[in-house]
């Protein structure tokens, strides 16, 4: 798998997330959201250390309203963990790095 966080959009969400081979994490964020900016570096860091276990992606909710709306997202940051096209776990708000590692190790 690739290191780094892949920017996805409404157009390629199905291909990159739902139909992906392994588990995928989507970070729903927006430039106006303070906690989103704060959590960004943690996710970047994890994509380096756990990039072989899960695919890391992010989705700008301003530019891509359809996907967050489909999943009923009304708070960001929201992190959704997908496995075989289904939601395996979901976290709203700031989260610790260790909690994220725990979730990733559980679902992958």
């Amino acid at each position: 798998m690739v290191e780094g966080v892949l920017e996805i959009n409404d157009g390629n969400f199905e291909a990159e997330v739902l139909k992906a081979d392994g588990p995928v994490m989507v970070d729903f964020w927006a430039p106006w959201c303070g906690p989103c900016k704060a959590i960004g570096p943690i996710i970047e860091e994890l994509s380096g250390s756990l990039g072989d276990k899960i695919k890391f992606t992010k989705c700008n909710v301003d530019d891509n309203p359809a996907t967050p709306s489909k999943y009923g997202i009304r708070s960001i940051p929201t992190l959704i963990f997908f496995k075989n096209g289904a939601v395996a776990d979901q976290i709203v708000g700031l989260v610790t790095k260790s909690k994220l590692e725990e979730i990733i190790n559980t679902i992958s």
């Binding site: 106006w32 906690p35 009923g72 997202i73 009304r74 708070s75 960001i76 929201t78 709203v92």
Partner: peptide
């Protein structure tokens, strides 16, 4: 996260 929030700057929009 589905309407209940404590962060207006995150979720207001």
């Amino acid at each position: 996260g589905k309407g209940v929030s404590s962060c207006a700057t995150c979720d207001g929009p």
